[in-house]
Design a protein around this nucleic acid. Structure first.
Lengths: 340, 340
DNA sequence: CTGAAAGCGCTTACAG
DNA sequence: CTGAAAGCGCTTACAG
């Protein structure tokens, strides 16, 4: 408690114990070949000084650190859920986790951020990294697992079955009687955004509903990006009776915009999202969405990364997690079902 | 993409650019006194090789790293909320955040964990740290802010106004007509647990309701700790008509136990928690609780730490955040109000 | 304007 | 069983 001076180093311990730093290092790391009496002396000096080895110095010197990294551009509910899964998978694994969060980019997408930090960590601090929703393809000298990669990525990855999820949404809306279904797309460089749009198109095509480009808004997964798009979609005379947004964050904005324009949900407009973040259950009305178990994305990513680092991975390097449609109050048949 | 070999170091850049590492370092850090042509050469070598400086090597050498740390023992909803506040406060502050999570202790309280990791980070990697709910008093050579400190702690800290929060709970229950109010306490070493219990006692005393030690269960904030205590409280003939648990996690377990024993909530038993984690709103019935804005705890802690590190702090080093009673479906008057 | 050298706190061959 | 020395990738006086 009184000790608020310079940090205690290995040299301090060596001096107090009357041995070399090499010997202290051996004791700290439990290496063989140190006499019992020396061990005792060193231990007592460590105790007395409250010494802990510096993570930085240790990992600079060693090749293996037993620390895994996670790099994410922001900390919304999505990332928090992923994190819980990661922690569970790493529980008692012998690997600690370091999460690196860039303060200057909170809530925004900044190009290249992940790559830069991945590189800064991976040579020295971490044995491998998880990158969540990177801006672009990433590369690294140590193993990497990407959650929600860009289109065409060849890096090991974990994603939800976005195609099936989006398909089930559109089938649900079609089943309710909707024919004019708007879509707000996500960041187009991401494989997930692409698959969700593909699911939308294919399900419409399968039902023989013609595709109308006027019903598509191009967002970027950020909630804010959906606001002007929702206004645009709802302004026309021939407005859609349902809007499917490629993320819950965007869908919640659609809800907001609809209310602002005096439209009742689901009476005048059905709204569906994708993700199933906790906020969606609390919305009024509850948001119909696709659950993609962010917890499981994190869990599987951590599991894969761990195996990659220890070199014991056998299976496929691209994992797909099943999705599940969650129907809540934001969807209903359109007011006047046009001749089914 | 093809580059998956050894990491690119400053020496590599120096070799390609035909200069010394000292010069590369100067260019990377934007120091004065390098000729324009040299800067250009070095920049081009950096570009060509995809060089990024090693966070570890840099922070080992430098005294100031512009990285703040957060050490937490687990990653439940509580920590995730705190994190959001921390990130918001650090947004565009020039400080990055590193979160260190120990994999071997997920979900459990392990003595001394925080201190050990704090020490391992603070000499070298971080300029300062936030520690969430430490097991014991912490110390460090660099600034520390504790969220939810132990009793008697002298370290800068941020806490909710636990006394007022607990008082409002008991007043709410008394107002409904409850007289036999059980209490499940938190980890007694924490100031928050102490204040919540004090609020409980004082509010009872103020209302002239005698304190009954048989109505107190000693938990530790972990949800699991509440299960046997709830059974014990509800087993007696003269069981309480309401139970106030010192955390939502424990209160949700009380809900479970009550149901398991065939008691209806709030008909047979009112239940109240503390924290207002997202799960509490979703419980059936919704849990009456005290909102302590974990987001704000994180925000204020980060703000305080930042000021401490830059040396510009003026105010008090112990910040208290107001709390707010949130009444939901889990509380109601007792079945037969004993003569008010 | 630039480089050789020392050193941040450790670990690991190499001698002895 | 133990220590002197080199080196992990950087930065910073110190010379020139």
């Amino acid at each position: 408690m009184a000790d608020v001076g310079a940090p205690v180093t290995m040299s301090d311990v060596a001096r107090v114990a009357g041995v070399s730093t090499a010997t202290v290092s051996r004791v700290v790391n439990g290496r063989y070949g140190v006499s019992a009496s020396t061990i005792a002396q060193v231990r007592s000096a460590i105790e007395q000084l409250g010494y802990e080895s510096s993570l930085v110095a240790t990992s600079l010197r060693r090749s293996r650190t037993n620390v895994l990294g996670l790099v994410a551009h922001s900390f919304q509910s999505y990332t928090a859920e992923v994190l819980k899964g990661v922690m569970q998978a790493l529980s008692r694994s012998g690997f600690d986790l370091i999460i690196y969060a860039n303060s200057d980019l909170y809530g925004t997408y900044a190009e290249g951020w992940e790559q830069r930090h991945l590189t800064r960590l991976s040579g020295t601090l971490t044995d491998g990294c998880i990158v969540v929703t990177p801006w672009d393809e990433v590369r690294s000298g140590t193993p990497v697992v990407v959650i929600d990669p860009v289109r065409g990525s060849t890096v090991p990855s974990v994603t939800a079955d976005n195609l099936a999820g989006a398909t089930s949404v559109v089938e649900h809306l079609l089943g309710l009687g909707h024919r004019r279904i708007g879509f707000i797309a996500g960041r187009s460089s991401l494989a997930s955004a692409w698959s969700r749009e593909e699911g939308y198109r294919k399900a419409l095509a399968a039902a023989g509903v013609p595709f109308d480009p006027a019903l598509i808004g191009r967002g970027d997964f950020n909630p804010e990006s959906a606001t002007p798009l929702a206004h645009a979609l709802l302004a026309g005379a021939d407005r859609p009776t349902a809007i499917f947004a490629a993320s819950d964050g965007m869908a919640l904005k659609v809800l907001e915009v609809a209310k602002g324009r005096g439209l009742s949900v689901p009476g005048d407009l059905s709204v569906v999202g994708f993700d199933n973040i906790p906020e969606s259950a609390l919305a009024e009305p509850g948001l119909t969405t696709v659950d993609q178990s962010m917890y499981r994305l994190g869990y599987e990513a951590a599991h894969l990364l761990k195996s990659l680092v220890t070199g014991e991975w056998e299976g496929h390097r691209r994992i797909e997690i099943p999705t599940r449609l969650v129907v809540r109050g934001s969807t209903a048949p359109p007011r006047s079902t046009p001749g089914l």
